[in-house]
């Protein structure tokens, strides 16, 4: 890649930051060149973010209808999935799966509620709600 080919496509996922890319200068040596981002990176990053957003939105709808627990919504909102939430909270997957259902969630003890809230980086009160 030559210096002039370093993409400067103001990738909005970078949030105004720049990242370094090694490219060939006019004298033929490689050097670190700041890049404002590449569209390809923006596409794949947004894709991954949007995948979680879609999962969260669907889970929220289900929770509104009473088919799922708010925990599922908060799990996807924290960009986690079942296995990661289980590992991060230190609970077994089957227990987490149970808590993703409304009945299981309703039976949660305050201690476990606290544990989930901490794992997800929110407060206990937030865990109960859908926003």
């Amino acid at each position: 890649m030559n210096v002039n080919d370093v993409p400067q496509e103001s990738n909005r996922t970078l949030d105004g930051q720049r990242k370094g890319v090694y490219a060939r200068r006019a004298d033929g040596r490689l050097a670190l060149v700041p890049s404002q981002g590449w569209e390809v990176e923006e596409i794949v990053t947004r894709q991954a973010v949007e995948a979680f957003e879609a999962l969260a939105a669907a889970a929220r709808e289900r929770a509104r209808r009473g088919e799922s627990s708010p925990l599922e919504y908060h799990m996807y909102r924290a960009r986690m999935d079942l296995s990661l939430l289980a590992q991060a909270s230190g609970l077994w997957r089957w227990r987490v799966r149970r808590h993703l259902k409304p009945q299981g969630f309703a039976r949660l003890s305050p201690v476990l509620r606290q544990r989930y809230a901490e794992t997800l980086g929110i407060t206990c009160a937030q865990l109960e709600t859908l926003d």
Partner: peptide, 21 residues
């Protein structure tokens, strides 16, 4: 495939799966 590209381009510096580095 998006995940593959993210692992290649966004982890670490330089891009191109560290080949430029």
């Amino acid at each position: 495939i998006g995940h593959l590209v993210r692992m290649q381009e966004e982890i670490g510096t330089g891009g191109g799966g560290f080949r430029f580095l």
